[in-house]
């Protein structure tokens, strides 16, 4: 009656019956994008940045990344143990925080700066709020802001420069600072390829764009955020250019220089600390771009990505409130 080679089934008299269980619908779920996979995506996406930083800053980069990674993982272990929670290293989020933090620091910063920044990132940036998903601010930026204030010297523009360094890039001021101090303009190609001084991950525009595109294509990062940042920063830079036609620091310099692209693709896109709905994400991006430019123009610092992101993080609950999507068919 039935083909002989059919698989063993429960209706065979003595065959064991498969174990059935019930659960709520839906009974299918996608497996391509889990929390863990999204974190691994970020690690994949930063590889071009790591490559450039190893190439430009050599062992400075290696050391800083090792310190921050070790620091963040250790902090995660210690703090979760203290809260008696089950350990969550497998979600890779501490790894991501460590890498992003390291890439936002200058190469010459001493090891303890990295360690302290790591512990603040994980402890105050994340764990205090209740762990992954609960934090308001981008953890890496919390850690970086702390050391920026506590070790002002190491993180100020001069902290990036080591005149004795065997590494070429590090003997010069960062392009952003050089411009702010002396009006010297870096060539666009140097900014594009990344052969300049700066935080480890920010120097190469092309690396940020490659990694950033990957993140957006994977939908791990929401494209609305980088688009918002770049648009608003571009518009503001354009207005500044029109107001001062003599300036050699053009819109493209603004976009490719400093950590604008690094911030737009890798920092502002942290899902936890950015808004939920697409419109909110765009507004968030526009806000980040706006504050970056405002800080670049008017603050004492040459760069403003970190403060811009933290500021918009603080505004995120408000943005979420303003941008509740209108329900289908709602008047």
């Amino acid at each position: 009656m039935m083909p002989k080679n059919r698989p063993k089934t429960a209706s065979d008299e003595k065959a064991p019956i498969p174990v059935l269980h019930v659960a709520h619908s839906p009974h299918l779920c996608q497996t391509a994008r889990t929390t863990q996979r999204m974190m691994i995506d970020v690690v994949i996406a930063v590889t071009p940045l790591l490559v450039v930083s190893f190439f430009v800053f050599r062992w400075y980069a290696v050391k800083q990344i090792a310190v921050c990674l070790a620091g963040c993982l250790a902090a995660e272990v210690i703090f979760t143990k203290m809260r008696r929670r089950s350990l969550s290293l497998s979600d890779w989020s501490a790894t991501v925080t460590g890498i992003i933090l390291a890439l936002s620091l200058p190469g010459p910063a001493p090891w303890y700066v990295g360690v302290i920044a790591s512990f603040v990132s994980i402890g105050i940036g994340k764990i205090i709020f209740g762990g992954i998903g609960m934090n308001i601010f981008n953890p890496a930026m919390v850690g970086r802001a702390f050391v920026m204030i506590a070790f002002a010297g190491n993180l100020a523009a001069s902290g990036y420069v080591d005149p004795m360094s065997p590494i070429d890039a590090m003997t010069q001021a960062t392009p952003m600072d050089a411009f702010k101090q002396t009006g010297a303009t870096a060539t666009l190609s140097a900014l594009f390829w990344g052969l300049t001084n700066g935080s480890l991950g920010e120097t190469s525009a092309v690396a940020c764009i490659i990694g950033g595109f990957y993140l957006c294509l994977r939908r791990t990062a929401s494209w609305e955020i980088p688009v918002g940042v770049i648009l608003s920063a571009g518009v503001m830079a354009g207005i500044a250019n029109l107001a001062d036609l003599q300036s050699h620091w053009t819109v493209l310099h603004h976009l490719l220089g400093g950590s604008l692209l690094f911030g737009a693709f890798f920092i502002a896109t942290d899902p936890v600390s950015s808004p939920l709905a697409p419109k909110g994400k765009f507004i968030f991006g526009v806000g980040v771009g706006f504050f970056i430019m405002l800080l670049r123009f008017y603050s004492g610092y040459p760069e403003g990505v970190m403060f811009a992101v933290l500021l918009m993080n603080a505004l995120t609950p408000l943005i979420n409130h303003w941008t509740i999507p209108r329900t289908f068919g709602e008047k």
């Binding site: 089934t9 429960a10 299918l28």
Partner: peptide
């Protein structure tokens, strides 16, 4: 032909909205 041994959940309806 019966259930296979690795059958784990029976659903009446579709897998998105059906009942186990």
């Amino acid at each position: 032909g019966g259930l296979t041994m690795d059958a784990a959940r029976l659903i009446a309806g579709g897998p998105m909205t059906g009942f186990a």
